[in-house]
Design a protein around this nucleic acid. Structure first.
Length: 324
DNA sequence: GCGTCCAGGTCTACC
DNA sequence: GGTAGACCTGGACGC
């Protein structure tokens, strides 16, 4: 059982909606697929550069217009000043309390789809777990398969190689560390987690990360958008789509499923022919129209599909199932 | 039941 | 530089 070692209280530029930020409507997790969310409070876990895992309990003390977030940190031992500072940095990144969305909201007013999404998800931040390795695993398991199998692979990875931490009467399953996965035999990884050819890439990424060949989140953040993407695409198994998911400079990671929806929403007609042909069209549109806010546009639309399809009377298909 | 097809990308060999 | 073809697995579908 971890003990409470420190608390942080954070302010944010309004509007800021804590619940929508940490518990997004489309069902995606904040830090780990096995975190707990009950009545406005979230219990989750983050990994520090020292490989220590801290438990996080977070809730809102304020409102959308007067935001204030309380985060309690749990750990085996008291954190050093450096690790406490790193924990705060991770929390700031994940809560998005330093991001001001007013500019995005002004831009959104010019596009009916975004205007509706902003109305529905007012105050939400697009931010999430700033851990490159977790995002590498996620993006690789999302490739070339149905979403059900992606979830299965993720579940098996966490169940077989992740660690469970217990704090504040909650038990949270954490992602496996790069060190752990680098030491697992590739065949074992393939068989135990149903990864197929992805086992080679995940194992290689774990090894590269241990050897310092993959930049950290903060290092990527300091790079330009293009440099960060180029650095990520040097990881085996990470192409343009995956790099857009991993990078701290969010792009527009449309795939053959989401491109059909975005095409319909943006151009008012269904995409005909091979869906892959629509990907560069939608990407180009997002880059040209929304520039640095394209990641926000993607997150807002993706998390508001049910409402958008109803309000704009557009059929977005039957693939809106809840995520794990 | 059983065989076949193909999917929320990426890599590699070949031209 | 551009582009087929291969890659794991498992659910859907046709027979």
């Amino acid at each position: 059982m971890l003990k409470r070692v420190c608390d942080f209280t954070l302010g944010a530029p309004n509007p800021y909606n804590f619940e929508l930020t940490v518990h997004k409507p489309a069902g995606w997790y904040w830090f780990t697929p096995f975190e707990a969310f009950e009545r406005g409070t979230i219990w989750t876990a983050a990994r520090l550069s020292s490989d220590d895992v801290v438990g996080l309990k977070a809730s809102s003390l304020g409102s959308v217009e007067k935001p204030e977030v309380l985060v309690q940190v749990f750990c085996e031992d008291r954190l050093s000043n450096a690790l406490e500072k790193e924990t705060l940095e991770i929390i700031r990144e994940a809560t998005g309390v330093e991001e001001d969305v007013k500019e995005f909201y002004l831009l959104a007013g010019r596009y009916p789809v975004l205007e509706q999404a902003v109305k529905d998800l007012y105050g939400m931040r697009a931010s999430e777990d700033p851990e490159v390795f977790h995002k590498v695993i996620l993006s690789i398991t999302l490739q070339m398969t149905r979403i059900e199998r992606s979830y299965k692979m993720l579940r098996l990875l966490l169940q077989n190689y992740g660690r469970t931490i217990v704090f504040d009467d909650h038990s949270i399953r954490m992602w496996p560390s790069a060190k752990t996965l680098s030491q697992v035999e590739e065949d074992e990884l393939r068989e135990k987690c149903n990864l197929g050819y992805r086992a080679t890439w995940i194992k290689k990424a774990a090894e590269d990360l241990c050897e310092g060949e993959i930049p950290s989140w903060m290092e990527l953040k300091k790079m330009s958008r293009e440099e960060a993407k180029k650095a990520l695409m040097r990881i085996r198994g990470v192409g343009e789509y995956s790099a857009d998911i991993i990078t701290p400079h969010p792009g527009f990671p449309v795939d053959v499923w989401s491109v059909k929806i975005f095409y319909t929403l943006l151009f008012g007609r269904e995409l005909e022919g091979n869906p892959r042909s629509g990907i560069p069209v939608v990407r180009e549109y997002a880059e040209k129209e929304w520039g640095k806010w394209q990641g926000y546009a993607f997150t807002y639309v993706l998390n508001d599909l049910k409402s958008l399809s109803r309000e704009l009377q557009i059929n977005v298909g039957d693939t809106l199932d809840e995520k794990p």
